[in-house]
Amino acid sequence: MTEENIKDALIKKFSLPEGKVRIQRKRRMSAEVDRLKFKDVFEYAITELKFVILCTITGLDEGSNLSFIYHLSTEDGIVLNLKISVPKENPAIKTIIGYFPAADIYEREVMDLLGAKVEGLPPGNRYPLMDEWPKDAYPLRKDWKQNKTKEQEAKNA
C-alpha cells in the first residue's frame, strides 16, 4: 500500500478534512483526528492499513491542550504519526495496551512527565520519576520550572 492509498483510505473512511492527513515525505505521514474518533481510526490503521508496529507515544504541551502522537509503522517502513489533542484541564486518553501490551511503559511516561490521565491502565510501577515526586508537577509541561537549590543558583549567578 502506498502513502497515497493510505491517505485516501483514511480520508474516505472517516471523512477527515483534506488538510488533516498529510504526506510529509516518502514513508512519513501524519494525521490529526478528533479524540472521539481516535479509537476507530487507530483500530482501522492497525487492522486494515497494517500499521502493526508501535514506535512510541510522544506527548506535547500545546498551551491549553495536551497532544499525544502515536507513532505507528508498517512492516515496510511507512510511519503514521496519529495525533490527538485533549484539553489540559482534563487530559484523559484511553489506554492502547489492548492492541500493544508494550504501550504500558510509554503511557506511564506521558502520565509522569505530562500529567496525562490514561483510562483503563491497570495500576503498576510509575515511570520514570521517583515515587516521592510531588503531585501535579509535570516536568515536560512548558510552565514547569526546576526548583534550583541555593548552591545551584549561586553557581549560575
Partner: peptide, 18 residues
C-alpha cells in the same frame, strides 16, 4: 516536525523533533 528512526546495535531508536 520530523520522526527519525535508526537501527542502533540494540534495536530501533526513535527520535521525534518539533
Amino acid at each position: 516536525e520530523a520522526v527519525s528512526r535508526y537501527e542502533a546495535p540494540r534495536g530501533e531508536d526513535v527520535h521525534y523533533v518539533k
